[in-house]
Structure formats: C-alpha cells, structure tokens
Design a protein around this nucleic acid. Structure first.
Lengths: 337, 337
DNA sequence: ATGAAAGCGCTAACAA
DNA sequence: TTGTTAGCGCTTTCAT
C-alpha cells in the first residue's frame, strides 16, 4: 500500500541506508547514486513518514509557532505571520504546529515543555511580545531548543527577523515635518511591546532633528485598538492648541483618530493629517487612504522560519535579518493648515 | 532519560500492553489496575510519544484545521476558530495542525493528500467556505478521513456546528421594523458564502413578515470588507429615497456604512440606523456602538472539534450542534426618523 | 561511498 | 482481564 524507504531502495538497487542518506541530504553519496534514488522517489511518489523519522532519529522536522493569546494585539498580524511561517515550512518539508500561550499565566512555559517532550519540535518561532519573555527563553534554553524571533527587542545573539521601526517612524514624522507640520502628536501603543518603544523613539528623533521641542501633552497612551485611538484623539482635541498632525503607533488607532476627527468636524487631511503604522488592509479602505509604513508581516514570518531552518539543517549560523520598511504615502497627510 | 510506557509497566508490575490499554481508555481493564497505572503515570510524569503511537497504531491523535487562504474574509474570525479548536484539542490530548489551502488553485486538494499520507491526521475541521467544496469533501471521503464543519451550507449528513443565521438575521431586521423602519436596505456578502445567503434570506423573511415589499434597489452587493461597505452605502445614498436603516451582512461592512454616513453628513442613529453581523471586537469600538448579532466563533471552533473527537473516540455518532445566536442591541439603531 | 543489524516507543493480533 | 510476540518505517551505530 504505502511506499516505504525500503521499496525505493529495492527499486534502485541500493540499501535502505543509502536512500536514507539521500533523503537527509548527507554529502557522502555519489552524485550518480543520488540522482537515481531521487528519480525513484519521484516516480514512486515516495513520502517519508514523519512519525517514523521522528521516532528513529533525533529530528522531528517539526517547528512550532508560539503566540501570546492574552494580549492579542492585531490578529491579522499574527495570521499573516503564520502564513509566512507555513510558506517556509512547505519549502523545506517541515511541518508546523501553532501554540498559543497565555503570558499572564504563571506557568505558561508548560506549553513549551509539552511541545518539546511530546513532539520533539526541532525549533520554535517566537512572535512579539513572546520574543523577550525571560522565563520562556530560559525554558527553551534548558530544553536546548533553538528559536527564531520576529521583531525582538533584544537583538544581540538572537536569530530571526527585524525591521528598523525606529527609523521608519522617524521617516514618517519627517514626512509630516516636511509638509510644514510643527504641532505633531503621537499615540503610543501598549507599553511592553518593543514596537511601541521604537515608534515613540523614532517620533522623538524626528522632532529633535527638526528642532521641534517635545510637548508631553502631545504624547498620549493608546492600546493598539481602534477604540483607544478614538479616545486618545478626543484627548488631543481637548487641548488648547490642537495638533495639526497625529502619528498613531498603528493603523487601527489611526483609524480611530480619523473617526474622532470626523466626529469633531475636522476634515482629514485639510484640518488634520493622520498617519499610522503597519499598512494593514484597512489602510487603503479608509477614506482618505492612510499614510503609513508597510511592514511585510508574511515575509517576516517566512524569513524568520527560514533562518531557523537554516540553523537546524546546519546551513549557516542563522542570522537576524533586517527587512526594509516602506513609506506608504497616501492621502491622509497633506500640508499643514 | 525519557519515561516510557515500559517503565510505567515495570513500576506498576503489569505488562506494557495493559498500560497501553489504560492510555487508550479501553474498557477491559480492572478498575483497580487502572487506578494504579494512572497513578504511576502521574507520579512518573509519563508522556506518551505521539511519534511512536502514530507509527505503531492506526491513530495519530492529530487533527488538522483547514482554511481558505485566498478568499480571506475576516482573519479575526479564523483566528478565533483556531483558538477554539485548540481548546478542544488540549482537552482531549490531541494535537492540531493548521493548513491553509488555496481554493482557487486547481489541485488544492493536494494539501489534503499530504496531511493524510504524511501525518495520518485522524480528522479534519473545515471552515467556511471549505465546508462545501465538493472536490475537497470527495478527497476526504476517498481517504476515509472524517471531518467536522463549521457553518456548513449542507447540513444533511454533516457533523460540526452551525448557527441559525437566517433566523438571527430575521430577528435583527425585525428589530429594525419594530423601531418603525420601512425603508430597510441590505448589503450582501460574498456570493458563494453560506453566510451571505442565510443573512439575505433572513432579511427577506423579516420584510415579508412585516408586509414590506422587497425593493431590489435596497439590496446591494458587498464583499465582507470595510471598503465594500463604504462603496455599497454610497450607492444606497444615491437613491432617490434614502433608506432609514441599513443591515450589512457583517460588522466590517457596517463600519464602512457608518463611515460613509459620516462622510455624507448623516448622523447615526438619528438619520440612519445601522446594524451588522458577527459582533467582532470592533463593534463596541465604533461610535455609536454597533447593533449586531453575536456569533460565538471560538466556541464554535471548540464545539466542532469536540464533535469530531467524539466521533474519533467512538463516543457517540458526532452531531451537527446548533449554537444560539444573541442579538446585541446597541446604539447604532434607533427609531426611524 | 555503502551496507547490516539493532532498535526508537508504541500497538496489533493473537493467545492465555 | 491480562500477557506475548511481532512489527510500524525509519535512523542509528558499526562495519566494510
């Protein structure tokens, strides 16, 4: 019924072990043999059994993607990352398991134990804000399971993928400055996310670079949600001197700002320029379309997983690769009134 | 190092096979033996190896969740379902794999082949609109892999979970009628989704029940996105007799309607009542908060997976359970002007 | 560069 | 109700 490694061996006239070597891309196989085996595998439609490989060998060809399930910032972001990781898995014949953890729970690292001792996952992809959870990293280290991180705060000694969010935020605010804005407000994201810090830092950099003093009233706290954007904007609109531009730390909050502007009778971008961050699908569905920074989430998921697999397969040391950001200049920003 | 079934057997003084029986909840084990084995497992912190179980036995204790990756309607919906399925898996010591498929691709059923022949998944959870893909169902049948469906169009012979969306939509529109509305418009969702059909049917039912003739101009096509809601609403606002209420087939489009209303200078709910469907997080973040129907996605994911596992474990035949809807009456709907 | 034997940890099919 | 004997399909030694 099922085509086994042994069947391929028999068909090729070599031993099972040789077929195994080809399967595992070991170098010590004569090229001509390799080709014959590969051809047989192809024509017989051979598919190795992950269970058997996992049981006999030291590798499971399984990676897990971990995400925080409490603090669910933007589920569209995680969904894209997940798809990206899956892209990479497909490309290298790895399988993926997803595993939500609840960072708030005291023993949330139990999840990792289960993943490792039950499934022997070869590696783990970490999404924010899990990337910098000390107990989690500790546990992974104890288990000897390598990981790749997506947008980690701590870059040193980490493999995975990052983007220069601070520089991107700075570029965004510089764009506002170039349009003649001086009273520029910022809505900050959830405190312990690296993204919040970087975007705030970039905002400050841009102001400093333009010689605009930082006004604390213009920096208000948000939570990455639409609703928190509305609330933050209302707070800004209550100020004696209204900002002429608002940079929200993500698109959801920016949409909230536009909503509040509408409510307040402010026309975007005539009376108020608004920009966000992430370039979610919503950015182009709003009216006017939102100026924002494109963050290639799916690509980032894929790259992180690729770095991890390179490491697992002994192909290079695994790197922290940086992806370029892209300024998406649309109609929600215009010259200062 | 690792605690094996054999170790538990030795510690308990029984044969490995007996421990296996306990592990697999077979009935033919004396209760006292069962307890002793269970206790030993617990104290030794025994964790069965999925790989070994999969290799030796006929079951893999793996289920896969399939979703369509082209036609990605609301990723928050899928994310919630995924979490629900995982809840159920945790409860029954199953593992989950996620597998996006591209329904548009001609041979998208290949994915299923891989899942089945590589991983021997015991069962599959289908999300809309995969639930009614004839080629997919056919392939699953050929492989002999059972499936549970979430909101399938075809109820007969299907196990999984559904909601009476038609009745829910009807209730929603009846609520509008009760508020004195007569000119009620509907924005339809993507054509081949069961959800679109049911919600439209419920809308028609309610109108018919109230003796309001159906005006084709008041039924416009949308695509389940915010942007399509904006466009559809503009279309409705161009009509000689403006509707006093708009029922959008989901919350995203309802948000688009509210956006367009704002743009047009219509005050919600004073000039226009708006309602959606799904009760996404956004519904309470909008202003005014959106009247909608709550669809318990996570719960539905969990229930579907539970039905599947009941079937797999021989616990009952597996049912198509119906979850109740809930009308979320908020401030976006009010008496007709 | 290739092969033979032994097992990974569990369950199937029998037996008792 | 419980135990025995073979494997599941691969990889690991260790040979050659």
């Amino acid at each position: 019924m099922r085509v086994r490694l042994e069947d391929v061996a028999r068909a090729t006239g070599v031993s099972p072990k040789t077929v195994s070597r080809v399967l595992n891309e070991e170098s010590s196989v004569k090229e001509s043999t390799r080709q014959r085996v590969l051809a047989a595998m192809e024509s017989m439609n051979y598919r190795p059994s992950p269970a058997a490989r996992g049981l006999a060998g030291s590798r499971s060809f399984l990676v897990a993607m971990l995400y925080d399930n409490n603090n669910n910032p933007a589920s569209t972001y995680l969904a894209e990352i997940q798809d990206g990781v899956l892209d990479a898995c497909d490309a290298h014949r790895y399988s993926m398991m997803v595993s939500p953890v609840r960072m708030r729970d005291k023993d949330f690292t139990r999840r990792v134990d289960a993943l490792v001792s039950d499934h022997h996952v070869d590696g783990v992809v970490l999404t924010p804000p899990l990337t910098d959870s000390a107990p989690l990293l500790q546990r992974l280290k104890e288990h000897g399971v390598p990981h790749a991180s997506i947008s980690p705060v701590q870059h040193k000694g980490t493999i995975g993928v990052c983007m220069d969010e601070q520089q991107a935020a700075r570029a965004l605010v510089e764009h506002l400055v170039a349009l003649g804005h001086r009273r520029i407000a910022h809505i900050v994201g959830i405190a312990d996310h690296g993204a919040s810090r970087w975007r705030l830092a970039g905002y400050k950099d841009a102001l400093a670079g333009a010689g605009i003093p930082l006004d604390p009233d213009y920096v208000v706290q948000g939570e990455f949600t639409f609703g928190s954007g509305v609330i933050a904007a209302r707070q800004l609109f209550a100020l004696p001197a209204l900002p002429t531009a608002i940079f929200a730390a993500n698109d959801d909050m920016a949409a909230g700002v536009m909503w509040a502007a509408n409510e307040r009778g402010l026309k975007v971008p005539r009376d108020l320029s608004v920009c966000g961050f992430d370039d979610t699908p919503m950015a182009v569905q709003l009216w006017p379309p939102l100026t924002t920074v494109r963050q290639p989430s799916r690509e980032m998921g894929k790259l992180a997983a690729l770095q991890l697999m390179d490491l697992l397969r002994g192909r290079g040391p695994g790197l922290l690769v940086q992806v370029p950001y892209e300024l998406m200049q649309r109609e929600s920003t215009a010259a200062a009134p």
